[in-house]
């Protein structure tokens, strides 16, 4: 780890000013990802701007009937927040599926959106990685790619975005409030994370110097018919091979509205509005779910070790939709798949 200057920001404006001075500076909040990457020499900020004490730790109702989550709200506090448990249980469930309670106690809401990939080639500075060192090549393409993406890949990068929480935020159509040198703006969740394309070094569409100040949830929480189903190599404390977040509105046995997003399959939480549209107005049955899964996976492509993810994702989508439709969401502690 290189040495760095440590400064603590006293306000959002202070934080934005501090980072504007120094392009090699980074914000730190929970630290669970950044400190890890600094120890691996993957991240080398010359200045750390500590924003963990900013008063962005509130979860508040919005006038539109939604919820505004401060960027510094800890993952565990959010997962167990009464309003989230009652109105957005898919978010609560997704958070509990990720990491460990210790890490969730530290990790911030904003930081969760900014997690970097777990790709082994990204993490090991002795190996090529276009995300870490643009132009050095992608070691995973012809290497160990069991954990890697099957959707939205490019020749430059097949890394996946590792967050569980963000899968739920994607399907809930969260909005990301940011502040920066040019003032405040709001980014739709789907427009926040990027696909790798030719610039895999850019995970998201934050502009230099911008910081996340809040994540806002609209009112629709899908609290009756939802599920977060995470499939992994051991039963807890492992990154997803595939995860599926689902929210349904069901009336008279028919799907009025559907939300569907996947984790572990792409460079961003993978939401498919075409599949959602195909579900809307249909009866909730397996044939319909299978059709939706086929739509989601229409362009899926494996790279060898991860070919199995396509079929796994298909089955997981059908299962998660079934769980949601039946009102039997996946438990995150009882590991029997509902």
């Amino acid at each position: 780890m290189i040495n760095f200057q440590y400064v603590r920001a006293n306000s959002i404006a202070d934080a934005v000013n501090l980072i504007a001075d120094d392009p090699a500076a980074k914000f730190v909040a929970g630290g669970t990802n950044l400190i890890d990457l600094m120890k691996m020499d993957v991240e080398q900020p010359t200045k750390l701007i500590d924003i963990s004490r900013l008063a962005l730790d509130k979860v508040e109702d919005t006038a539109e009937g939604g919820l505004r989550i401060g960027a510094m709200v800890r993952n565990s506090d959010l997962a167990y927040h009464p309003a989230v448990e009652a109105r957005y249980p898919v978010l609560s469930s997704a958070i509990r599926a990720g990491a460990s309670q210790q890490l969730r106690n530290m990790a911030s809401t904003g930081g969760n959106l900014l997690q970097r990939t777990r790709c082994a080639y990204f993490y090991d500075i002795a190996l090529p990685c276009n995300k870490r060192t643009p132009g050095s090549g992608c070691g995973a393409l012809a290497g160990h790619n069991r954990m890697h993406a099957i959707l939205g890949t490019s020749d430059a990068c097949i890394a996946v975005f590792p967050s569980d929480m963000c899968v739920a935020l994607a399907l809930l159509e969260a909005r990301v409030h940011v502040s920066g040198p040019n003032g405040a703006r709001t980014i739709a969740f789907d427009a926040f994370h990027r696909l790798p394309g030719e610039t895999p070094q850019r995970d998201n569409n934050l502009e230099p110097g911008e910081m996340i100040v809040a994540v806002e949830l609209p009112s629709a929480g899908f609290a009756s018919n939802y599920s977060y189903l995470k499939i992994r190599d051991r039963l807890s404390y492992a990154f997803a091979l595939v995860s599926v977040g689902v929210g349904l509105e069901i009336a008279d046995g028919r799907i009025k509205a559907a939300r569907l997003a996947l984790g572990g399959v792409a460079h961003k939480p993978w939401r498919d509005t075409r599949a959602e549209a195909a579900l809307a107005g249909q009866a909730a049955n397996e044939a319909v779910f299978r059709q939706a899964a086929d739509i989601v996976l229409r362009d899926a492509r494996g790279f060898g070790h991860n070919n199995f993810k396509i079929e796994l994702a298909r089955r997981a989508i059908i299962r998660a939709l079934t769980q949601a439709a039946n009102g039997t969401p996946q438990s995150q502690s009882n590991k029997k798949i509902a």
């Binding site: 440590y6 730190v28 929970g30 630290g31 669970t32 400190i35 890890d36 750390l48 500590d50 963990s52 565990s76 460990s100 309670q101 210790q102 890490l103 106690n105 530290m106």
Partner: peptide, 18 residues
């Protein structure tokens, strides 16, 4: 794992100065 202001955290991933 230690208790930081009563909450369990992994002490390896936070800087003392923070």
């Amino acid at each position: 794992t230690v208790l930081l202001d009563g909450r369990r955290v992994v002490s390896c991933l936070t800087l003392a100065v923070m």
